[in-house]
Design a protein around this nucleic acid. Sequence first.
DNA 1: GGCTTTCGCACCTTATCGCTC
DNA 2: GGAGCGATAAGGTGCGAAAGC
Lengths: 339, 339
Amino acid sequence: MGSEHKPPVTLRTLADQLGLHVSTVSRVLHAKPDEGARAASEATVERIRKLADELGYRPNPHATSLRTRRSNLVGVLVPRLSDIVLATIYEGIEEAAAEHGLSTFVTNTRDVPDVQRARTEMVLGRRVDGLIFGDAYIDAEFLSGIAARGVPFVLVSRRAGEHPSVTCDDYQGGRLAAEHLLSLGHRTVAVVAGEPYASTGIDRTAGFVDTYRDAGVPVPGSRIVHTPFDARGGRLGAEKLLTQHPLPSAIFAVNDFAAIGAIGAARDRGLRAGTDLAVVGFNDTPLAAELPIPLTTIRSPMHEMGYRGLSLLVRLMAGEDVESQRLAPTLMVRASSTG
Amino acid sequence: MGSEHKPPVTLRTLADQLGLHVSTVSRVLHAKPDEGARAASEATVERIRKLADELGYRPNPHATSLRTRRSNLVGVLVPRLSDIVLATIYEGIEEAAAEHGLSTFVTNTRDVPDVQRARTEMVLGRRVDGLIFGDAYIDAEFLSGIAARGVPFVLVSRRAGEHPSVTCDDYQGGRLAAEHLLSLGHRTVAVVAGEPYASTGIDRTAGFVDTYRDAGVPVPGSRIVHTPFDARGGRLGAEKLLTQHPLPSAIFAVNDFAAIGAIGAARDRGLRAGTDLAVVGFNDTPLAAELPIPLTTIRSPMHEMGYRGLSLLVRLMAGEDVESQRLAPTLMVRASSTG
DNA sequence: GGCTTTCGCACCTTATCGCTC
DNA sequence: GGAGCGATAAGGTGCGAAAGC
């Protein structure tokens, strides 16, 4: 075992063994079903296919890409894959990519602009045919630079400027959360609003705040705190909110993990989620329903966002004009808000 | 905007503009610092580097791969990236890969053998130089087939057969959990053991059970249940365990998310984690410390596993002999076991 | 003879044109 | 004149051999 160098099976291998020319073999192996007729005679087509199968011929993608100037590769940039939201979106992307015969390079940028730039250059260096950004900043400065270079791309999860995107209707999600808490009678409410540069947090917060304002209950800025989208961020944010007077009776966290952190912070102060403090999260992560105190949350179609994002990119790469999509969120009522 | 076709900058572009031969340019642009002297004269080296910089020359990786038969690509197969454990391992892999100038294809196999096969073929079709499996079954049947084809690969997270792997010392982790619970006086204990085909769950359970046995307290098979590695699995597993008599006073779940599910199941039966029922998890996911009832757990070096896994693969691809690594776990004591 | 540079081909595939019966 | 196939070139890079000074 060890150094068994099987020479790779190439078009020439097949051609030589069949006494045909490589170009003939290429044409046949590549012909789409509908145009198969012109490639060669029935009999030769059969012979070629059979041998290719037997020898396990696999076209060399580097040679193909070199020749066709298409890599069938797409780059995917996300803040972090260890955030289950982005990981789930990526699963949707990957599923759609597989269906289109595309492969993906996915990379974490940690929401750090320098890393975003560096990793984008890296995937472009790999000659991807298109890009998907899950880490867009609301000011689309960086993205405009990419657009100017003529590389097709779409955004998922977060929107920015007029670039094509597939997002949850986050504003509407914020409204749903507000309407739910309003219906429960909460009038002193606070928001753990996420990072200030992400449209997700911005839009969810805006939808929430606007709905409360429209109901005649303004939410003062002091009751809106910005934090990272994770449990630790939620805990820190809630700790600030829970020192205010009067104490809020409800907290809307723009992310399930932040909501979990908020519940922990509440508990440290002797407040029980669901009875003493209503908590609403966002995304309906699988964990939400399984928590000791199940979490009321706004479900966002994460997998679908990824799936549709890649589909949109495919159309964009084909030269079509495309439009952004906003997918509808759903309210999931559980014990963390109803006791 | 739209159709601005800048002709790509190739070696020939540079060569023509400098009045040199492409091969000269090629030699200079990849001479390593130490052998730079031999590539060309100081002056030409300078001229070439300068122009390459100005025009933003990026070598075409397809051409390079075609020529060198090296793609600088590695394939990574994991059960699911939406499992934060694997996602974090992947972050380590990616970090190390970037340092080595490698790019990764990562793909979810959902622990389904047919998908594992299909995705493996797909990445091999992309001509990866090596593979990392995070989804190994304990019976190494499939992997032996890959090994026979001469493709270098390493395992991370899970071990299997004698294939090189980087894992947590899961057996030791199980011991730590057992010693902790023994020291707290728990003698009626149960295990949520994860999937029966994964070495992680198997070894953690074995370390736990062996330690209890050695202490004169055997853990009967009826108190060990196999479930998926997630919150839902943990809940279902714990529900089974909590119908037994006598009721266990402690549960060891081989995964933090399963532990969270177990805590939820306990709560549904009126048992409070930490006081009525001790719960110990595994991995020390970031969430563990932030939970309303912080989770006692065994910390495993997830990021490092990935980082070292890729480093090991690099050495393997260089033809070195490598040995498997087991990284030490650490006990993190929190309220879910101590009240 | 050593340093610098050029030449030519190979890697594998595909697109287009052209030949032959 | 059309069906079936071959010939040729190109895509960008890298390596060995050989040439220039």
